[in-house]
Amino acid sequence: MIVPLNHILLLSGLLFSLGMFCTLARRNLIMMLLGIEIMLNAAAVAFVGASLHWQQMEGQAIVIFILAVAATEVTIGLAAILVVYRRTDSVDPDMDAALWEKGGSR
């Protein structure tokens, strides 16, 4: 039995909203990065579902590339967060330049 496409789109839509909520609401850089990750994976789920629905392999090929893109995104994001954390002792996205100065003088 094949799950109907609408159900899959609903699931991925739900996942996408959760990810977006996480990105917008959490005041923690790591959690925001996780939220973006969940949004990317929601798109991947939708691609796999659509690929099954249309009986094509192209959707699944795109998912593999999405995984690579997501890995790149985490690499850059975590590297930047790490530098910021070392300087400011904070993972709050609202930090301002003053805090940076204080941390930078350590």
Binding site: A43, A46, F47, A50
Partner: peptide
């Protein structure tokens, strides 16, 4: 990406 997934769907 999510928009593209919907278009593909």
């Amino acid at each position: 990406l999510f928009g593209l997934a919907i278009i593909y769907g």
